[in-house]
Protein backbone atom coordinates (compact mmCIF):
# COMPACT_ATOMS: atom_id res chain seq x y z
CA UNK A 1 0.00 0.00 0.00
CA UNK A 2 2.98 2.35 0.06
CA UNK A 3 3.15 5.48 2.14
CA UNK A 4 0.17 7.28 3.64
CA UNK A 5 0.84 10.81 4.77
CA UNK A 6 -1.71 11.48 7.49
CA UNK A 7 -3.05 14.97 7.90
CA UNK A 8 -4.70 14.45 11.26
CA UNK A 9 -4.42 12.21 14.27
CA UNK A 10 -7.84 10.79 13.57
CA UNK A 11 -6.86 9.92 10.05
CA UNK A 12 -3.68 8.30 11.29
CA UNK A 13 -5.59 6.20 13.81
CA UNK A 14 -8.11 5.14 11.20
CA UNK A 15 -5.31 3.98 8.91
CA UNK A 16 -3.73 2.02 11.71
CA UNK A 17 -7.03 0.49 12.71
CA UNK A 18 -7.49 -0.80 9.21
CA UNK A 19 -3.97 -2.09 8.87
CA UNK A 20 -2.31 -2.56 12.25
CA UNK A 21 0.86 -3.94 10.63
CA UNK A 22 1.61 -0.57 9.10
CA UNK A 23 4.97 0.84 10.10
CA UNK A 24 4.68 4.22 11.76
CA UNK A 25 7.17 6.83 10.58
CA UNK A 26 7.87 9.98 12.53
CA UNK A 27 11.23 11.72 12.00
CA UNK A 28 12.78 8.67 10.37
CA UNK A 29 16.10 9.06 12.16
CA UNK A 30 15.96 5.56 13.61
CA UNK A 31 13.60 3.79 11.27
CA UNK A 32 15.41 4.77 8.09
CA UNK A 33 18.73 3.57 9.46
CA UNK A 34 17.14 0.13 9.74
CA UNK A 35 15.56 0.45 6.29
CA UNK A 36 18.87 1.44 4.71
CA UNK A 37 20.54 -1.57 6.28
CA UNK A 38 17.82 -3.79 4.91
CA UNK A 39 16.78 -4.88 8.38
CA UNK A 40 13.40 -3.14 8.24
CA UNK A 41 11.04 -3.58 5.35
CA UNK A 42 8.78 -0.63 4.69
CA UNK A 43 6.06 -2.03 2.53
CA UNK A 44 3.36 -0.07 4.21
CA UNK A 45 4.10 3.13 6.03
CA UNK A 46 2.09 5.71 7.92
CA UNK A 47 3.86 9.05 8.02
CA UNK A 48 2.98 11.22 11.02
CA UNK A 49 5.36 14.04 10.21
CA UNK A 50 2.79 16.31 8.66
CA UNK A 51 0.09 16.33 11.29
CA UNK A 52 -0.04 19.95 12.52
CA UNK A 53 -1.57 19.08 15.90
CA UNK A 54 1.36 16.78 16.69
CA UNK A 55 3.84 19.62 16.30
CA UNK A 56 2.24 21.98 18.80
CA UNK A 57 3.00 22.57 22.42
CA UNK A 58 1.04 24.42 25.07
CA UNK A 59 1.15 25.41 28.69
CA UNK A 60 -1.97 24.05 30.32
CA UNK A 61 -2.18 25.22 33.90
CA UNK A 62 0.82 23.85 35.72
CA UNK A 63 1.59 21.37 32.97
CA UNK A 64 3.26 21.56 29.62
CA UNK A 65 1.96 19.43 26.77
CA UNK A 66 4.04 18.56 23.74
CA UNK A 67 2.65 17.11 20.56
CA UNK A 68 4.59 13.91 19.90
CA UNK A 69 5.81 15.28 16.59
CA UNK A 70 7.68 18.22 18.03
CA UNK A 71 11.25 18.16 16.76
CA UNK A 72 14.40 18.48 18.84
CA UNK A 73 15.07 21.76 17.08
CA UNK A 74 11.62 23.04 18.08
CA UNK A 75 12.44 22.19 21.70
CA UNK A 76 15.14 24.86 21.59
CA UNK A 77 12.39 27.50 21.61
CA UNK A 78 13.38 29.98 24.36
CA UNK A 79 9.88 29.78 25.81
CA UNK A 80 10.23 26.03 26.19
CA UNK A 81 13.76 26.46 27.52
CA UNK A 82 12.39 28.71 30.26
CA UNK A 83 9.78 26.15 31.32
CA UNK A 84 11.65 22.85 30.96
CA UNK A 85 15.31 23.79 30.55
CA UNK A 86 16.61 20.25 30.92
CA UNK A 87 14.52 19.13 27.97
CA UNK A 88 15.95 21.87 25.79
CA UNK A 89 19.43 21.00 26.99
CA UNK A 90 18.89 17.33 26.23
CA UNK A 91 17.42 18.06 22.81
CA UNK A 92 20.51 20.06 21.86
CA UNK A 93 22.74 17.06 22.57
CA UNK A 94 20.88 14.87 20.10
CA UNK A 95 22.88 14.01 16.98
CA UNK A 96 23.50 16.87 14.61
CA UNK A 97 21.43 19.86 13.45
CA UNK A 98 20.13 17.66 10.63
CA UNK A 99 18.99 15.00 13.07
CA UNK A 100 17.48 17.56 15.42
CA UNK A 101 15.39 18.97 12.59
CA UNK A 102 13.97 15.58 11.71
CA UNK A 103 13.86 13.65 14.97
CA UNK A 104 10.91 14.04 17.31
CA UNK A 105 10.16 13.72 20.98
CA UNK A 106 7.57 11.05 20.29
CA UNK A 107 10.02 9.19 18.11
CA UNK A 108 12.63 9.22 20.87
CA UNK A 109 10.07 7.62 23.19
CA UNK A 110 8.77 5.09 20.70
CA UNK A 111 12.30 3.95 19.88
CA UNK A 112 12.81 3.54 23.63
CA UNK A 113 16.56 3.20 23.45
CA UNK A 114 18.39 3.05 26.79
CA UNK A 115 20.44 5.91 25.33
CA UNK A 116 17.49 8.04 24.17
CA UNK A 117 18.61 11.55 25.07
CA UNK A 118 15.35 13.12 26.18
CA UNK A 119 14.18 10.13 28.17
CA UNK A 120 16.06 10.76 31.44
CA UNK A 121 14.50 14.23 31.54
CA UNK A 122 11.01 12.91 30.94
CA UNK A 123 11.57 10.16 33.47
CA UNK A 124 12.77 12.63 36.07
CA UNK A 125 9.65 14.69 35.55
CA UNK A 126 7.25 11.74 35.55
CA UNK A 127 5.97 12.62 32.12
CA UNK A 128 2.75 11.03 30.99
CA UNK A 129 2.08 9.93 27.44
CA UNK A 130 -1.28 10.33 25.79
CA UNK A 131 -1.80 7.38 23.47
CA UNK A 132 -4.54 7.23 20.94
CA UNK A 133 -6.11 4.64 18.73
CA UNK A 134 -9.28 4.76 16.67
CA UNK A 135 -11.21 3.38 19.58
CA UNK A 136 -9.45 4.50 22.71
CA UNK A 137 -7.52 7.30 24.36
CA UNK A 138 -5.36 6.31 27.26
CA UNK A 139 -2.61 7.73 29.40
CA UNK A 140 0.53 5.86 30.36
CA UNK A 141 3.22 7.02 32.72
CA UNK A 142 6.63 7.06 31.11
CA UNK A 143 7.89 4.49 33.62
CA UNK A 144 5.27 2.10 32.29
CA UNK A 145 5.62 3.08 28.68
CA UNK A 146 9.19 1.97 28.13
CA UNK A 147 9.15 -1.72 28.89
CA UNK A 148 12.68 -2.77 27.98
CA UNK A 149 15.52 -2.20 25.56
CA UNK A 150 13.80 -0.68 22.55
CA UNK A 151 10.39 -1.98 23.52
CA UNK A 152 7.35 0.05 24.50
CA UNK A 153 3.77 -0.31 25.63
CA UNK A 154 2.19 0.83 22.38
CA UNK A 155 -0.55 -1.53 21.32
CA UNK A 156 -1.51 -2.33 17.78
CA UNK A 157 -3.29 0.63 16.27
CA UNK A 158 -1.95 3.13 18.79
CA UNK A 159 0.18 6.19 18.32
CA UNK A 160 1.71 8.61 20.80
CA UNK A 161 -0.33 11.77 20.59
CA UNK A 162 1.29 13.94 23.20
CA UNK A 163 3.55 14.02 26.19
CA UNK A 164 2.62 15.94 29.30
CA UNK A 165 4.76 16.92 32.23
CA UNK A 166 4.56 19.24 35.17
CA UNK A 167 6.31 22.59 34.99
CA UNK A 168 8.55 22.60 38.03
CA UNK A 169 9.87 25.69 39.75
CA UNK A 170 13.62 25.55 40.08
CA UNK A 171 16.81 24.95 38.14
CA UNK A 172 17.33 21.93 35.92
CA UNK A 173 20.39 20.31 34.45
CA UNK A 174 20.96 17.70 31.77
CA UNK A 175 24.44 16.26 31.20
CA UNK A 176 25.53 13.63 28.72
CA UNK A 177 28.85 11.87 28.35
CA UNK A 178 29.97 10.99 24.86
CA UNK A 179 33.51 10.42 23.69
CA UNK A 180 33.15 12.99 20.93
CA UNK A 181 32.33 16.65 21.48
CA UNK A 182 29.22 16.49 19.31
CA UNK A 183 27.09 14.03 17.39
CA UNK A 184 27.59 11.09 19.67
CA UNK A 185 25.47 8.45 21.30
CA UNK A 186 25.24 8.83 25.03
CA UNK A 187 27.54 6.69 27.15
CA UNK A 188 25.84 8.01 30.27
CA UNK A 189 23.32 10.78 30.78
CA UNK A 190 21.61 12.37 33.73
CA UNK A 191 18.87 14.89 34.32
CA UNK A 192 18.42 16.73 37.60
CA UNK A 193 15.18 18.62 38.08
CA UNK A 194 14.46 20.83 41.07
CA UNK A 195 10.91 21.09 42.33
CA UNK A 196 10.79 23.91 44.87
CA UNK A 197 7.12 23.65 45.63
CA UNK A 198 7.26 19.89 46.10
CA UNK A 199 10.64 20.21 47.85
CA UNK A 200 12.00 17.46 45.75
CA UNK A 201 15.07 16.94 43.62
CA UNK A 202 14.34 14.54 40.80
CA UNK A 203 17.01 12.49 39.05
CA UNK A 204 16.68 10.60 35.79
CA UNK A 205 19.53 8.55 34.36
CA UNK A 206 20.14 7.09 30.91
CA UNK A 207 22.43 4.49 29.31
CA UNK A 208 23.05 2.82 32.65
CA UNK A 209 20.27 0.25 32.58
CA UNK A 210 17.92 -1.32 30.04
CA UNK A 211 15.41 1.45 30.73
CA UNK A 212 16.17 5.00 31.89
CA UNK A 213 14.87 5.41 35.43
CA UNK A 214 14.62 7.67 38.46
CA UNK A 215 17.19 7.20 41.18
CA UNK A 216 14.65 7.40 43.96
CA UNK A 217 16.87 6.59 46.91
CA UNK A 218 19.26 9.34 45.89
CA UNK A 219 16.29 11.68 45.41
CA UNK A 220 14.99 10.97 48.91
CA UNK A 221 18.37 11.58 50.42
CA UNK A 222 19.17 14.80 48.63
CA UNK A 223 15.69 16.25 48.93
CA UNK A 224 16.11 16.08 52.70
CA UNK A 225 19.59 17.53 52.66
CA UNK A 226 18.91 20.30 50.18
CA UNK A 227 18.47 23.77 51.62
CA UNK A 228 15.12 24.71 50.15
CA UNK A 229 15.26 28.28 51.45
CA UNK A 230 18.61 29.43 50.14
CA UNK A 231 19.70 26.78 47.66
CA UNK A 232 23.11 27.16 49.19
CA UNK A 233 26.04 24.88 48.59
CA UNK A 234 25.99 21.47 50.16
CA UNK A 235 28.85 19.87 51.99
CA UNK A 236 31.21 17.70 50.04
CA UNK A 237 30.08 14.76 52.10
CA UNK A 238 26.46 15.23 51.11
CA UNK A 239 27.30 15.73 47.46
CA UNK A 240 29.44 12.61 47.46
CA UNK A 241 26.76 10.59 49.18
CA UNK A 242 24.24 11.72 46.57
CA UNK A 243 26.64 10.85 43.81
CA UNK A 244 27.21 7.41 45.33
CA UNK A 245 23.51 6.73 45.70
CA UNK A 246 22.89 7.60 42.06
CA UNK A 247 25.74 5.39 40.91
CA UNK A 248 24.66 2.54 43.16
CA UNK A 249 21.20 2.58 41.64
CA UNK A 250 22.50 1.83 38.14
CA UNK A 251 23.06 -1.49 36.43
CA UNK A 252 25.18 -0.62 33.44
CA UNK A 253 26.65 -3.01 30.94
CA UNK A 254 29.99 -3.25 29.12
CA UNK A 255 29.81 -2.46 25.45
CA UNK A 256 32.00 -0.90 22.80
CA UNK A 257 30.90 2.57 23.85
CA UNK A 258 31.99 2.21 27.45
CA UNK A 259 32.55 -0.20 30.27
CA UNK A 260 30.04 -0.80 33.06
CA UNK A 261 32.63 0.36 35.55
CA UNK A 262 33.14 3.63 33.68
CA UNK A 263 29.42 4.22 33.33
CA UNK A 264 28.84 3.73 37.03
CA UNK A 265 31.67 6.09 37.81
CA UNK A 266 30.63 8.68 35.24
CA UNK A 267 26.98 8.79 36.29
CA UNK A 268 28.17 9.59 39.80
CA UNK A 269 30.30 12.41 38.46
CA UNK A 270 27.38 13.78 36.48
CA UNK A 271 25.17 13.62 39.57
CA UNK A 272 27.70 15.56 41.57
CA UNK A 273 28.20 18.20 38.92
CA UNK A 274 24.51 18.61 38.22
CA UNK A 275 23.89 19.10 41.91
CA UNK A 276 26.69 21.63 42.21
CA UNK A 277 25.26 23.59 39.31
CA UNK A 278 21.80 23.54 40.80
CA UNK A 279 23.18 24.83 44.08
CA UNK A 280 25.15 27.50 42.31
CA UNK A 281 22.16 28.46 40.19
CA UNK A 282 19.95 31.45 40.75
CA UNK A 283 17.10 31.00 43.19
CA UNK A 284 14.08 31.43 40.95
Amino acid sequence: MGVIIAKSVNEACAVLAENPATTVLAGGTDLMVQANRGTQSLESVLDLSRIPELKKWALEGSEIVFGAGISYTDLADPQIAALVPALTQAARTVGSPQIRNAGTLGGNLATASPAGDTIPVLVAMDAVLQLKSSTENREVAIADFITGVKTNALQAGEIIQSITMPVFQGPQEFLKVGTRNAMVISVVSLALVTDYSGRKLRVGVGSVSPVPFRATEAEEFISKEFDWETNSSLSEKVINKFSELVADATKPIDDHRGTAEYRKHAVGVLAKRALERVCAGERL
Binding site: G2, V3, G28, L42, S49, T73, P97, N101, A102
Partner: peptide, 12 residues
Protein backbone atom coordinates in the same frame (compact mmCIF):
# COMPACT_ATOMS: atom_id res chain seq x y z
CA UNK B 1 15.35 22.92 7.04
CA UNK B 2 18.49 20.85 6.71
CA UNK B 3 18.00 17.11 7.01
CA UNK B 4 19.92 14.00 6.04
CA UNK B 5 18.20 12.83 2.88
CA UNK B 6 19.32 9.27 3.64
CA UNK B 7 16.92 9.32 6.60
CA UNK B 8 13.95 10.63 4.65
CA UNK B 9 11.66 8.04 3.15
CA UNK B 10 11.42 9.23 -0.43
CA UNK B 11 7.72 8.61 -0.86
CA UNK B 12 7.02 10.58 2.31
Amino acid sequence: EIVCSCLVLAAS
